[in-house]
């Protein structure tokens, strides 16, 4: 039976990727890019543990790191979906602020001691984020503008509106119960923020890796035309992905309120880039089609562990920015090498 199979001798000669038994390292790099970053995290954390086990592994340090990582995870979850579609969402930090401002204003309006206020505030934050995400998605998918420009523009608009609404100053008015249960709450010693972030990331990861919706997300990032021809409604799907990112920003906005008991208008101008950094560190490709939620969660941890560890070992924390930049460059180089090592 001479069919495609007999061409394999031919293919093997021309094609290094088809050689039998590719090296283990090569397989890990090509198929599981997030493995590299786990190794990096283990080395970094191992270093700090070795130098200052008492301080680095203290309860307070671990709790602080888990809260920092949890906060960033909300944005990184949405960013993972967006980057897998070969998009980008620069508006998440501003949207976090806007959602928080809207939630506080509404909660103040109905009275922060009103029993329904926490829930109304949550709905307002999530609704605000999701609606804004839908708008982002509309401009990206339907008018086919570059996601970089669309979300750059909407980043400015969202922050501007947030400042207009708040008069430019941070406003307080977060129900005490929200701060107590979420912001500073703990269950069995574990910060509630970390628990919520973990549950949220697991849910988003299961959807991404086990459902049709997730598969379609990868397919669109890999080859939008092929996805279209396979019957996927690409535009609608893209709108939904940006809406998810907006939803995540809204949720992050609400959690931020609970943590600081106030809006933090000026504190999130770099959040978008931090989220992108985490996702790319986690092995996702800016060219789309590649990424895992697990990798993103590791990518979120690296800057957090670096920041706290460097302070503990007595180095200026500015080294964190340097180190994250270097690791980020390495991650992108690995991605590029991976792509070019594929057969064409």
């Amino acid at each position: 039976m001479s069919t495609i199979e007999s061409s394999k001798d031919n293919a093997e000669v021309n094609d290094p990727a088809a050689r039998p038994q590719p090296s283990l390292l090569r397989r890990l790099l090509v198929d599981r890019p997030e493995m590299m970053i786990i190794l990096a995290l283990v080395i970094i954390a191992g270093f700090f543990v070795a130098v200052r086990p008492d301080a680095f592994l203290s309860g307070i340090n671990i709790r602080n790191m888990s809260i920092e990582a949890g906060m960033m995870m909300f944005l990184a979850v949405g960013m993972t979906y967006v980057i897998i579609t070969a998009g980008i969402d620069l508006s998440v930090g501003s949207l976090l602020v806007l959602s928080g401002v809207c939630a506080v204003l509404v909660m103040r309006m109905i009275g922060i001691d009103h029993p329904a206020a926490p829930w109304v505030g949550l709905l307002v934050a999530l609704g605000c984020g999701t609606l804004w995400g839908l708008l982002n998605g509309f401009f990206v998918a339907v008018t086919r503008l570059s996601p970089l420009i669309v979300t750059l523009a909407s980043m400015g608009i969202a922050l501007g509106i947030a400042r207009l609404l708040s008069g430019g100053v941070d406003i307080t008015g977060v129900p005490r119960s929200v701060v107590n249960t979420i912001g500073i709450g703990r269950v069995m010693g574990i910060p509630v923020i970390f628990l919520i972030a973990t549950a949220f990331a697991v849910l988003a990861g299961v959807i991404l890796h086990r459902t049709r919706f997730g598969l379609h997300t990868f397919a669109i990032g890999s080859n939008p035309q092929a996805a279209e021809r396979a019957g996927i409604k690409v535009r609608r799907h893209l709108v939904m992905v940006y809406a998810i990112s907006g939803f995540c920003a809204g949720l992050a906005g609400y959690i931020t309120l609970s943590r600081f008991a106030s809006t933090t208008i000026a504190g999130h101008s770099m959040d978008n880039l931090r989220a992108i950094t985490a996702v790319v560190l986690g092995g996702a490709s800016l060219f789309g089609g590649v990424g895992t939620m697990f990798g993103t969660s590791v990518g979120v941890l690296i800057p957090v562990v670096l920041a706290s560890g460097l302070v503990i070992v007595g180095l200026p924390s500015f080294w964190q920015e340097v180190a994250v930049g270097i690791v980020l460059l390495a991650a992108v180089l690995v991605d590029q090498w991976r792509r070019s090592s594929r057969s064409r």
């Binding site: 990868f218 397919a219 890999s222 080859n223 092929a226 021809r229 996927i232 789309g288 089609g289 594929r342």
Partner: peptide, 14 residues
């Protein structure tokens, strides 16, 4: 019209 980041089965059933 293949999504090259997916495996063959995922492409067949996409």
């Amino acid at each position: 019209a293949l999504a090259v980041d997916l495996n063959p089965a995922e492409n067949v059933y996409l």
